[in-house]
């Protein structure tokens, strides 16, 4: 199953850092996400996109995870040659992950 089936995501950018919020549709799926969507697995899944460290924050109050991905935007929104300089589309790259 792809993450897309049980969770939604929003991408944000700060310089060359990409943020990916991961939010289960059902709050009862939050522990599963915590268990299955580890930093190591996300790093492996996004290895062609994220070149730096990934930090995962757990937010149990809102049953959500936040992945802060460094060196992920080809230099950042202002000087990247990519089409999507902000990385706004990358939430759906995370949701491609198989769990």
């Amino acid at each position: 199953m792809k993450l897309y089936e049980i969770a939604h995501s929003r991408a944000g950018d700060k310089g060359n850092t990409l943020t990916l919020a991961l939010i289960p549709y059902k709050e009862s799926d939050y522990p599963t996400l915590c268990e299955k969507v580890t930093v190591a697995k996300v790093k492996n899944h996004l290895h062609e996109i994220v070149w730096g460290d990934i930090v995962r924050y757990e937010l149990p109050n809102i049953a959500s995870l936040l992945f802060v991905c460094h060196n992920a935007l080809l230099g950042g929104v202002t000087t990247s040659l990519a089409m999507d300089t902000h990385g706004k589309t990358l939430s759906y790259a995370l949701l491609e992950m198989e769990i």
Partner: peptide
Amino acid sequence: LQTVKEQLLYEVINPF
């Protein structure tokens, strides 16, 4: 709740 949660974490580098 979905729209609010997505926006709360938007562009946040350290939620603490």
